[in-house]
Amino acid sequence: MSSDTEAARVVDRQIDAFNRQALDDFMACYAPHATVLTDGEVVASGADALRALYGRQFSEVPLTATVLSRSSQAEWIVDRERVEGGAGIPAMSVLALYRVRDGLIDQVQFVGREAQ
């Protein structure tokens, strides 16, 4: 799903890189101090932690994300995404809240995961 705001474009680039498991392209969408939260808990903070987290995921459990719907408000992009993996990995639906500042994602929160 595409939009024409700077925030939406960086989120779109990040999703594309995620789907290709292109770690350098993925990391280029994030601020050096970015934080990732899942259900309110910090799972990675800073570029080194994000690179380790997603590098491991891309090599061990490659997933793809499809944006089902999108809303935006100021610096926030809120996507409802369907995330799928290979054999044996059930599809899930999740809300992804991306905060974009100065052209980079500085925070992403994943909430409300549901099996599909």
Rank of each mutant, 00 (worst) to 15 (best):
S2P: 08
S2D: 13
S2C: 11
T5V: 08
T5S: 14
T5G: 04
E6N: 07
E6I: 10
A7H: 03
A8G: 14
A8N: 10
V11N: 05
D12Y: 02
F18Q: 00
F18H: 00
N19E: 02
R20D: 00
R20S: 04
Q21W: 00
F26Y: 12
M27H: 05
A28M: 08
Y30T: 00
Y30A: 01
A31Y: 02
H33T: 11
H33S: 09
A34Y: 05
T35L: 08
L37N: 07
L37Y: 05
T38V: 15
T38D: 07
S45Y: 06
G46R: 01
D48Q: 11
D48V: 07
A49L: 02
A49Y: 01
L50P: 10
G55P: 05
Q57I: 13
F58W: 09
F58C: 08
P62H: 03
L63G: 03
L63F: 05
L63T: 04
T64E: 09
A65C: 12
T66N: 09
V67D: 02
S69Y: 08
S69W: 09
R70W: 06
E75C: 12
W76Y: 12
W76G: 03
W76Q: 14
V78P: 07
V78Q: 05
D79S: 01
R80H: 14
E81F: 04
E81K: 03
R82P: 07
R82I: 01
V83G: 06
V83Q: 08
V83W: 06
G86Y: 04
A87R: 10
A87E: 11
G88P: 03
G88E: 01
P90S: 08
S93V: 15
S93I: 15
S93W: 14
V94N: 07
A96E: 01
L97P: 04
L97S: 11
Y98M: 05
R99H: 06
V100T: 05
V100P: 02
R101G: 13
R101S: 15
V108A: 13
Q109E: 15
G112C: 09
G112P: 03
R113S: 09
Q116M: 14
Q116C: 13
Q116S: 12
